[in-house]
């Protein structure tokens, strides 16, 4: 099966953006989290090509005189970091529970799957708002900035693990009925070893596909939460936070603060999604052979 050109482009774009996010301190002109670099004299400067801008700030500045380009690169770092960690957490929980449910069945299966059904009956955002609100209220220093990324990661993962659990459970049930698993049981290997050593490697391909598609979703959820004001604070902004800040100024004609982070978010999510969709089609035997 050939890989379509659009998917190759999307793959390159996604890789470049994620790389840029990872090495943000090396490539961003300024450190947007260091308030000492802000200067209110430079605030609300438009992008350089409008003629009224300043060559030091190619995409302009925000309301505090922060370089927007640097803020976006750092913002993408925060978004991808939180999204990636949420995917990792969700996949770890989901794969573990799915394996247990699929291999053992019975009441473990019933408990895991019903819990998943209940969680899936809540919209992602509602659940995330609930979790982050509860976390902030219950933790003694929950309001402190340091905890915010971890609260966000948990709030996103609590919804996303269900998908992994369902997929892995189904795959583990199929694999568990195959003769090589029976052979392992006849040898007398303990359940833990059979699950990790024999079943897990054989159910991982769909997990990778879901993880890719979920990465885009997690980045979006984080952006939504930050946009709603329960996410990352303005002094440590994610892309969503930047869009929220910019949103207040859009009607004053200062469009760039919201627009450029928004474009970045759209391109990032689109590129990752295209790669994920392609992977899904590729691993789906029903679609194989077509096109």
């Amino acid at each position: 099966m050939r890989v379509p050109g659009s998917v190759i482009v999307a793959g390159i774009v996604a890789t470049l953006m994620i790389l840029a996010a990872i090495v943000a301190p090396a490539i961003a002109p300024y450190d947007p989290t260091d308030m000492a670099t802000y200067n209110l004299i430079d605030s609300e400067l438009p992008p350089v090509w409008t003629g009224e801008g300043d060559a030091r700030f190619p995409l302009g500045t925000d309301n505090q005189g922060r370089d927007l380009l640097s803020a976006i690169i750092y913002g993408a770092r925060v978004s991808v970091g939180i999204g990636g960690a949420a995917v990792l957490l969700a996949a770890t929980i989901g794969v573990s529970l799915g394996l247990l449910a699929g291999y053992f069945g019975g009441w473990i299966d019933a408990v895991v799957m019903r819990a998943g059904d209940i969680i899936m009956s809540f919209p992602t955002i509602l659940l995330a708002l609930l979790v982050s609100g509860l976390a902030r209220a219950l933790m003694p220093d929950g309001g402190s900035v340091g905890w915010t990324p971890f609260i966000l990661i948990g709030a996103i993962a609590i919804h996303d693990w269900v998908q992994y659990a369902r997929t892995v459970r189904a795959a583990a049930m199929v694999e568990g009925a195959k003769d090589y698993v029976k052979a392992a049981r006849v040898i007398g290997l303990p359940g833990r070893r059979i699950m990790l050593h024999h079943i897990l490697p054989n159910v991982m391909s769909p997990v990778l596909v879901i993880a890719t598609i979920n990465l885009a979703g997690a980045v979006l959820t984080e952006a939504t939460l930050s946009f709603l004001g329960v996410g990352m604070p303005p002094n440590y902004p994610s892309l969503g936070t930047l869009i929220r800040i910019g949103n207040e100024f859009v009607f004053s004609g200062i469009w760039w603060i919201a627009l450029f982070p928004a474009i970045t978010l759209v391109i990032l999510v689109l590129a990752v999604n295209m790669v994920g969709d392609h992977l899904r089609d590729r691993f789906n035997p029903k679609l194989r052979g077509r096109s």
């Binding site: 195959k178 003769d179 040898i187 490697p201």
Partner: peptide
């Protein structure tokens, strides 16, 4: 269980596709 071992009908599903033959034999 060790003294009782079994071989199965379908040779295509009775081996773990992700394990080298050596690893499959060494495991027990």
């Amino acid at each position: 269980r060790r003294p009782l071992q079994m071989i199965f009908q379908d040779p295509y599903s009775s081996l773990n596709a992700r394990m080298r033959v050596g690893a499959t034999l060494v495991e027990p």
